[in-house]
Simulated scan of single mutants.
Amino acid sequence: MTPFYFGSRERRLFGVYHPAQGGGGSRAVVMCYPWGYEYVNAHRSLVKLASLLSQEGYHVLRFDYFGTGDSAGEDHEMTLQGSLSDISMAIEELKDLSGADHVSVIGLRVGAALAAQAARKWPDDISSLVLWDPILKGAEYLQELYLLDDSMRIPGVGPAAQFSPERGGGREVMGFPVTDALASEFSGLDVVSTISELKLPVFMVAIRPVPGQADVAYELSSRDGSGFELIDDQPVWHEEWPDNVGVIPVTVLNRIVSWMN
């Protein structure tokens, strides 16, 4: 496991490379994180998934989008369009590191929505796609974020901060800024229609039913090499003390690795 920086001087990204164990081959996977507090909660599970894939002979790259994690940029500078370009840079970086001609992409939540957009935009670079509980309808996700933040009152902490136009406008959600621009991008997400345009193998795994899921499941069931599974497990992106803090969804991770193989 090798941490390093890549990208451009203007857009410096932090990544962690997991080389294929046992010499490996040319199989490679880029992982796309969820957004905000969901990223914080799910990080441990995604590191474990990267380790499992490395043990199976995959070269794996995890990375932080610009304005998130240990990458350059301020948190209010993070946008979905910018993150999409970051995925492209991560793909090219992993191709250089691994010698692969193309990569598979695994995304969780917003990361899955971005992964689907990347597969539509760069079909020659991406060979297969794993969508883990993707955000299917962005407008519903945005309202879910606001409701969750409004419902979680912490003693001594006031209501969500509102940001000035100079800071991008919008408001804070679980400690992370949802600027006006980011809120607009969230609202515009429509993964259901994006998936219908993809020609590559797609595996979608979910731990809970949501609106629009049945349409995607039907779409994927008609394609060779694609599929959908609903697996009862913990939502790693949302921790509720003490029920699922730090829990790793081993069943989901093993199923993803199995499908990849």
Results as ranks from 00 to 15, higher is better:
residue 46 L to Q: 10
residue 44 R to F: 11
residue 21 Q to L: 13
residue 92 E to T: 15
residue 25 G to A: 10
residue 50 A to M: 10
residue 137 K to R: 07
residue 62 R to K: 08
residue 42 A to H: 03
residue 63 F to E: 11
residue 49 L to W: 15
residue 74 E to R: 15
residue 72 A to E: 05
residue 27 R to Q: 12
residue 146 Y to D: 03
residue 79 T to I: 12
residue 94 L to H: 04
residue 58 Y to V: 13
residue 123 P to H: 05
residue 48 K to D: 00
residue 71 S to M: 06
residue 114 L to R: 06
residue 143 Q to P: 08
residue 46 L to C: 06
residue 76 H to P: 06
residue 55 Q to C: 11
residue 38 E to V: 10
residue 141 Y to S: 08
residue 56 E to A: 10
residue 125 D to P: 00
residue 56 E to G: 00
residue 60 V to S: 03
residue 21 Q to A: 15
residue 30 V to A: 11
residue 54 S to Q: 15
residue 53 L to K: 05
residue 128 S to T: 12
residue 110 V to Y: 02
residue 93 E to F: 08
residue 48 K to R: 15
residue 113 A to T: 13
residue 22 G to I: 04
residue 95 K to H: 10
residue 40 V to C: 10
residue 131 L to R: 06
residue 67 G to D: 01
residue 123 P to L: 09
residue 76 H to D: 15
residue 29 V to H: 00
residue 124 D to K: 13
residue 103 V to R: 01
residue 131 L to D: 03
residue 138 G to A: 12
residue 78 M to E: 02
residue 26 S to E: 15
residue 94 L to I: 03
residue 25 G to R: 14
residue 104 S to T: 09
residue 138 G to K: 02
residue 82 G to Q: 09
residue 49 L to I: 06
residue 57 G to W: 13
residue 93 E to M: 11
residue 38 E to C: 09
residue 113 A to Q: 07
residue 128 S to I: 15
residue 79 T to Q: 02
residue 45 S to G: 10
residue 141 Y to D: 07
residue 53 L to V: 03
residue 101 D to M: 14
residue 54 S to I: 11
residue 78 M to R: 03
residue 27 R to P: 15
residue 108 L to C: 08
residue 43 H to M: 13
residue 47 V to D: 14
residue 135 I to R: 10
residue 149 D to Q: 03
residue 45 S to D: 05
residue 141 Y to L: 08
residue 111 G to A: 09
residue 145 L to E: 07
residue 89 M to D: 12
residue 26 S to C: 14
residue 99 G to L: 09
residue 62 R to W: 14
residue 60 V to Q: 06
residue 126 I to G: 07
residue 141 Y to G: 07
